[in-house]
Simulated scan of single mutants.
Amino acid sequence: MAFAILQIIAILLNVAITVIIVQAIMSWLLAFNVINLQNDIVNAIWTTLDALTAPIYRPIRKIMPDFGAIDLTPMVVIIAIIILQDAILPPLAQALLS
């Protein structure tokens, strides 16, 4: 049972990384005016992605220094997720299996 929960957490972390990458790419497309928020579909996708990532980004943005137009928060979150996946979840799974 506990191992299944850890597998679900691993899947959710992979989904979170995907959402963060999609949002980063979409923000670049918006910044370079390849797409714009006047399109209803683009606006709906952007609003959804922002609603999903804002709670994750908010505490990190309070800590991170301001780099102007460069937002490193997504990279920090992805690095934290990778550390969680590679350094914390495997020992936890091993401890639960023993």
Rank of each mutant, 00 (worst) to 15 (best):
residue 73 T to V: 07
residue 73 T to A: 12
residue 34 V to E: 04
residue 60 I to F: 11
residue 53 T to Q: 00
residue 81 I to S: 11
residue 56 I to W: 07
residue 82 I to D: 11
residue 31 A to N: 15
residue 47 T to W: 02
residue 45 I to K: 02
residue 38 Q to A: 10
residue 27 S to T: 14
residue 69 A to M: 11
residue 27 S to F: 08
residue 51 A to D: 08
residue 85 Q to P: 01
residue 31 A to F: 11
residue 24 A to M: 14
residue 54 A to S: 15
residue 40 D to Y: 04
residue 70 I to N: 13
residue 59 P to W: 04
residue 79 I to N: 06
residue 24 A to P: 02
residue 24 A to C: 10
residue 26 M to C: 05
residue 55 P to W: 09
residue 81 I to P: 02
residue 87 A to N: 09
residue 73 T to M: 07
residue 63 I to H: 01
residue 27 S to W: 03
residue 65 P to I: 13
residue 33 N to E: 06
residue 29 L to F: 15
residue 77 V to Q: 01
residue 64 M to E: 08
residue 48 T to M: 10
residue 41 I to Y: 13
residue 81 I to T: 11
residue 31 A to P: 02
residue 70 I to W: 13
residue 73 T to Y: 01
residue 68 G to W: 03
residue 64 M to G: 05
residue 41 I to L: 14
residue 45 I to R: 09
residue 66 D to Y: 03
residue 58 R to T: 04
residue 21 I to T: 12
residue 67 F to W: 10
residue 45 I to N: 09
residue 37 L to R: 14
residue 80 A to Q: 09
residue 76 V to F: 13
residue 45 I to H: 02
residue 29 L to G: 13
residue 45 I to W: 00
residue 76 V to C: 02
residue 26 M to F: 14
residue 85 Q to K: 05
residue 40 D to N: 09
residue 56 I to R: 02
residue 39 N to P: 02
residue 61 R to I: 15
residue 75 M to Q: 09
residue 46 W to I: 02
residue 79 I to S: 10
residue 86 D to H: 08
residue 38 Q to V: 03
residue 65 P to G: 06
residue 26 M to S: 02
residue 82 I to L: 15
residue 79 I to W: 11
residue 32 F to N: 03
residue 55 P to A: 08
residue 62 K to N: 05
residue 39 N to H: 09
residue 82 I to K: 13
residue 86 D to E: 13
residue 32 F to H: 12
residue 56 I to E: 00
residue 46 W to C: 05
residue 28 W to L: 11
residue 33 N to Y: 04
residue 79 I to P: 01
residue 41 I to P: 08
residue 24 A to V: 10
residue 84 L to W: 13
residue 72 L to T: 10
residue 35 I to A: 07
residue 45 I to G: 01
residue 34 V to N: 00
residue 83 I to C: 01
residue 37 L to Y: 06
residue 55 P to I: 07
residue 21 I to S: 08
residue 49 L to K: 09
residue 64 M to C: 06
residue 26 M to P: 06
residue 28 W to N: 12
residue 72 L to P: 09
residue 86 D to W: 08
residue 83 I to F: 13
residue 43 N to C: 12
residue 28 W to D: 01
residue 75 M to A: 12
residue 64 M to N: 05
residue 74 P to K: 05
residue 61 R to D: 09
residue 53 T to Y: 04
residue 36 N to W: 00
residue 70 I to G: 11
residue 28 W to Q: 14
residue 63 I to T: 12
residue 60 I to S: 03
residue 40 D to P: 06
residue 78 I to G: 10
residue 25 I to Q: 06
residue 61 R to Y: 15
residue 63 I to R: 08
residue 87 A to Q: 12
residue 23 Q to G: 14
residue 54 A to H: 14
residue 77 V to A: 13
